[in-house]
Amino acid sequence: MLAFSVVAEQGSFRGAAGRLGLSPSALSHAIRRLEDQLGSALLHRTTRSVAPTEAGARFLRILQPALNDIDRALLDLADTSGRIAGHVRINAHRNGAELLVLPKLGALQKEHPKITLELSVDEGLTDIVAAGYDMGIRIGERLAEDMIAVRLSPDHRTAVVAAPSYLEEMGTPDTPADLQQHRCIGYRFVTSGRLFVWRFAEGDREFETNFEPSLIVDDVQMSQRAAALGLGLAFVPRDAVEDQLEAGGLVEVLRRWSVTMPGDFLYYPSRRTLSPAARTVIDHLRKRSD
């Protein structure tokens, strides 16, 4: 019944098989056995998609609350036994993985050594359901439909940074308009292919800048690294380069023009029955770092 629920949710035997750790053929046989036991077809199968039949949709409406009750019962049992275990897969952008996940893993491992966490770094907008992930971390709460979003960080303040050696060579820009005369490191979105637009604020007015990047990357950490090597100015979340700013490896410029960006959100499918291990990971990631 859980297999049927996951197949209906993902609309794909391949995606559901990856989520459940089964082969597509084994999963298909399991659904066939369930249909034989119930005496009714639960899924419409085509070469391109899988969707519940009318009977399957009715069964799913009854089944889902029961699965949720079972999930809560397992979580309560696991809490009392102290033996929460399982494999949890997270898809996160690089700064989210480094700043919001890794620092909290020590406490998670000590309390729940039987949980295995698989962390995939991805700067694109991956469909976490189709790819078999339990949850994702992205900037902003406007995520895919049917997702539950949980804030993990406050909004970010932006910063334009450069290495001291670059500023000694090229000088320090006084206004955003001065960027036309500087080497700037652009960022290209992996999914859309668009270049990220640098935004600034003057009083209550926000505005964009236009310049020709001297270097374009598709990884935020690479942008920060390139700036530290003196290759140009980078536009980054300030908290991602806090340590480098304090150590003097990077210098912030145009500070009075900075703006805020949406914070980071953890998100997961609202219709999925979360395992006790996944719920435990979410609880740990929501905790503020000491």
Rank of each mutant, 00 (worst) to 15 (best):
L27S: 00
A66G: 05
D69L: 11
V251P: 00
A226M: 00
R225K: 13
L22A: 06
V150Q: 10
R94C: 05
R72H: 13
F207R: 05
L250N: 10
S165P: 02
G96Y: 04
Y187N: 01
D243E: 15
I90Y: 12
L67F: 09
A227N: 07
D127A: 08
R94M: 03
R271L: 05
A234I: 00
S49M: 04
G15T: 12
T191W: 10
I137T: 06
F265M: 05
A73F: 09
A8Q: 12
T80V: 10
N68I: 03
Q221F: 09
E35P: 07
G124A: 15
T280A: 08
A131R: 10
L233Y: 03
V197Y: 09
L195D: 04
P269D: 08
R255E: 14
D134R: 00
R279D: 05
P276G: 05
P269A: 04
V281P: 03
A30T: 12
E206I: 04
H284M: 04
R33I: 01
S270I: 05
V7D: 01
I148T: 09
H87G: 05
A57E: 09
S25Y: 14
P237G: 08
E35A: 10
R194S: 05
M261W: 13
A8T: 13
L229D: 00
T175H: 10
N210R: 11
E118I: 10
N95A: 15
H182Y: 14
N210Y: 08
S258H: 14
S120L: 13
V190H: 09
P113S: 13
M1T: 06
I31T: 02
K114C: 08
E118P: 06
K110Y: 10
L233E: 02
S270Y: 06
L117S: 08
R48V: 04
E202L: 01
E169C: 00
D146E: 13
F200Y: 09
A92M: 13
P262F: 14
G232E: 07
A131V: 01
L108S: 12
A277T: 08
L20M: 11
D69P: 03
G249Q: 15
V150L: 15
P164I: 02
Q181W: 13
I70H: 15
P269K: 02
R142I: 08
I70D: 11
S270N: 11
F4I: 07
P65N: 06
V88Y: 15
L215F: 02
N68Y: 10
I216Q: 02
A234R: 08
F211C: 03
D243C: 07
Q109V: 14
I137Y: 03
L63C: 00
L250M: 11
Q244P: 01
